[in-house]
């Protein structure tokens, strides 16, 4: 009798879990993705490689610090010599952007339209890099049929831009690994033509760092220009203490 009870209990738990798995909503999934991508704080070194349509490559390295779940971001280039010391500060989920140029020691505030600009002519825009909670605040999530992607069982979510939101994209299609909520693929569609596929972001080399699944490599493939840019992360640390003073104009010039 006791065995039967345990069996019934296990079956109930299993079916409840399954039911939960099926009923998880698009908003819940996106919230988990957002929480995963916007840790309390993060420090990393990033190697960015641009591959042009003619096959030429350009490599950049920068140090990156973020705080307050991605609300504050600071990036400082370390190589190549051409851009060494240049720094970008993004606050308020990239609504406020400042750029620092070391040769002239001049800091310039950029308007939000600068988010559309490519980072050092790569396939990543500033919007792609520092939009904080944009997946939640700027888009409406809709769950599509689950699918397999890169050999992972994935949730498939469509994010459609809310009215009056200034974004470079009309919609995104996300493939999110069910087991860890890492978005393994994100497809980006044109702001004015929702059928025009602009770019695909592929995340790979997933490692668990400080209990947080982290894609150590990202490749942005431009579907129009046939160019791509990869970003490889190194020295990733989460939830480290970062002084607010880092995320100021004084910190930008350090």
């Amino acid at each position: 009798m006791r065995r039967l009870l345990i069996f019934v209990l296990l079956v109930t738990c299993w079916t409840s879990w399954q039911a939960y798995g099926q009923e998880i909503t698009a908003d819940q999934i996106i919230t988990k993705v957002n929480d995963l991508m916007n840790q309390k704080s993060m420090v990393a070194t990033v190697r960015m490689t641009i591959v042009t349509s003619s096959g030429k490559t350009r490599t950049f390295e920068y140090e990156s610090w973020s705080k307050d779940s991605g609300e504050k971001n600071l990036m400082r280039y370390t190589t190549p010599a051409r851009v060494k010391g240049q720094a970008i500060l993004m606050l308020n989920n990239a609504d406020d952007i400042w750029a620092y140029f070391p040769r002239t020691q001049r800091t310039r505030k950029l308007a939000t339209h600068a988010k559309k600009q490519q980072m050092e002519d790569s396939d990543f825009t500033y919007e792609d890099m520092g939009s904080g909670n944009a997946f939640i605040t700027d888009f409406i999530a809709k769950r599509l049929q689950d699918d397999k992607m890169q050999d992972y069982d994935c949730y498939r979510i469509e994010l459609t831009k809310k009215p009056d939101i200034d974004s470079h994209y009309s919609r995104l299609i996300m493939y999110i690994i069910k087991s860890n909520f890492v978005p393994v693929v994100i497809d980006y569609y044109d702001e004015n033509d929702p059928s025009l596929w602009l770019k695909r972001l592929v995340q790979s080399d997933i490692l668990t760092i400080d209990d947080i699944p982290t894609a150590m490599k990202m490749v942005m493939q431009n579907q129009q220009d046939r160019t791509e840019t990869s970003m490889e992360l190194a020295d990733v640390k989460y939830n480290v203490e970062l002084d607010d003073a880092m995320f100021t104009e004084r910190g930008l010039k350090e």
């Binding site: 308007a111 939000t112 600068a114």
Partner: peptide
């Protein structure tokens, strides 16, 4: 001053 009005940098 530097900022933004209606999405345009000013």
């Amino acid at each position: 001053l530097v900022g933004e009005l209606l999405g345009i940098g000013v």
